[in-house]
Amino acid sequence: MLHRSAFDNEGFLRELSDWSPTVAEQLADAEGIALTEAHWEILYLLRTYYDEYNSTPAMRSLVKYCASKLGADKGKSVYLLSLFPGSPVKLGSKIAGLPKPHNCL
């Protein structure tokens, strides 16, 4: 378990490298989400996205990225919404330990 100081006041992890599956469980727990295989697939994809593009995705780019990496079935906003209700980008990024997206409401 990471100390509270590792997160900002909105619960986003401050340091990308502080992330681990355990931290993800901790973050998901705080959001009331029980992580499944399907969640992990997206979380690791979000980490890869950040590594590749040095930016937190927006819904638009994430959907396109999912489609190209995981296939058309998963490259849909409804699919992402079913895993991370409300705001998939914000919630997913948070649990994946990415910096807070600032181009997304």
Binding site: E52, Y53, N54, S55, R60, S61, K64
Partner: peptide, 13 residues
């Protein structure tokens, strides 16, 4: 931040 990497994401948008 690696600006080139950010640029590379433009087509996704």
């Amino acid at each position: 931040k690696h600006m080139g990497k950010v640029l590379a994401s433009l087509p996704l948008y």
